[in-house]
């Protein structure tokens, strides 16, 4: 080989297209990160001063636009309440479905494929359609029929209520739990299942004693992701349980409730004086953002912890 040929291997020549292409895609990435940063900085900067203990812990009077007396305690409690009730429904159903899909079903069977397609579709249904479903099914069908049977047709369940909002959200977040659980079930080495079965364990015993303990971090992550998604959603609860204002905290499943996300919407669009409500609006947004992000971080921490524990001992 002669000397000039080797020279081609050196990359000291400026390659315009390479520079242009990496630059453009890099800029796109930077721009997206910029958006994220802009939203976070904007919310924190404007919301920080309003975020006082008084604000977080007080129950507002009728006029919650008044910056001096207002608070968001009922909204925090309402959001937490609806999300907890949702979890009680969605986790068992989601986990059992994932167990069926990975442990029992054969991948080639038609029913499995239909279930998977349904899960995929459920994940893509617009949140407002879930709201309509909650109204049409839970309130107008289930609730009204419950009233006819149990309460002599007086309206107890056949109206917007916390339980209906929670159930609607449970249907909405079902795919999140299923997908996360399925992922963690698939990550368990098949050798463990074989070992248990070869010792004469039944399938159920194997799932209960070996598979599920191993999948716990994945299940928890799925649950927390579902919670964090549901906590920020407003559209599905609009017609199924949220209240513009309530003087008392929700205590029963048939109560309506106030909600952080909905409160953000109300403050930003229904305020009589936009400039005056801006500080409390931003403070409320900050509370909502902290809650949803904190949940995400908690998910990460729990996952790491449970994994460490599992590694060490049963």
């Amino acid at each position: 080989m002669n000397a000039p040929a080797t020279k081609h291997f050196r990359t000291d020549k400026f390659d315009f297209w390479s520079f242009f292409f990496s630059g453009l895609t890099g800029l796109a990435t930077l721009f997206i990160l910029g958006i994220l940063a802009a939203i976070l900085v904007n919310v924190i900067y404007n919301g920080w001063n309003g975020l006082t203990w008084h604000f977080v812990s007080s129950i507002p009077k009728k006029d919650f636009f008044d910056a001096k007396t207002t608070g968001v305690l009922p909204m925090i409690i309402g959001t937490a309440f609806r999300v907890i009730v949702m979890t009680i429904f969605v986790i068992p159903v989601g986990v059992i479905t994932a167990v069926y899909l990975t442990e029992y079903a054969s991948n080639i069977s038609i029913i499995t494929r239909i279930i998977r397609a349904a899960v995929n579709n459920l994940a893509g249904v617009p949140s407002i359609v879930f709201g309509l479903f909650g109204l049409g099914f839970f309130i107008n069908f289930v609730g009204k029929n419950m009233d006819n049977l149990l309460h002599n047709s007086s309206a107890v369940w056949g109206q917007p209520a916390l339980i209906w909002a929670s159930l609607t959200l449970a249907v909405m977040t079902l795919p999140v739990v299923i997908v996360a659980t399925e992922e963690s079930l698939k990550a368990i080495p098949p050798g463990l299942r074989e070992a248990s079965l070869a010792l004469g364990a039944t399938k159920l015993e194997t799932i209960w004693r070996i598979v599920l303990p191993q999948a716990l971090p994945g299940i928890m992550t799925g649950g927390i992701l579902a919670v964090s998604r549901a906590a920020g959603e407003v559209a599905p609860i609009l017609f199924t349980g949220v209240a513009y204002f309530m003087a008392s905290l929700p205590g029963r499943l048939s109560d309506q409730f106030m909600d952080l996300g909905y409160h953000v919407f109300v403050l930003s669009t229904q305020s009589p004086n936009i400039e005056q409500t801006r500080p409390i609006l931003y403070a409320t947004v900050l509370v909502l953002l902290i809650l949803t992000f904190a949940l995400n971080i908690v998910a990460v921490i729990i996952r790491a912890r449970v994994r460490k524990k599992l590694r060490a001992q049963s």
């Binding site: 463990l192 074989e194 004469g200 070996i210 049963s314």
Partner: peptide, 21 residues
């Protein structure tokens, strides 16, 4: 099958202890 497997033990190619003590 469960009863059968109690009587016919198996050791696998790749050791597969449970992630327990």
């Amino acid at each position: 099958v469960i009863e059968l497997r109690k009587r016919v033990g198996m050791v696998f190619q790749k050791s597969n202890p449970f992630p327990k003590s």
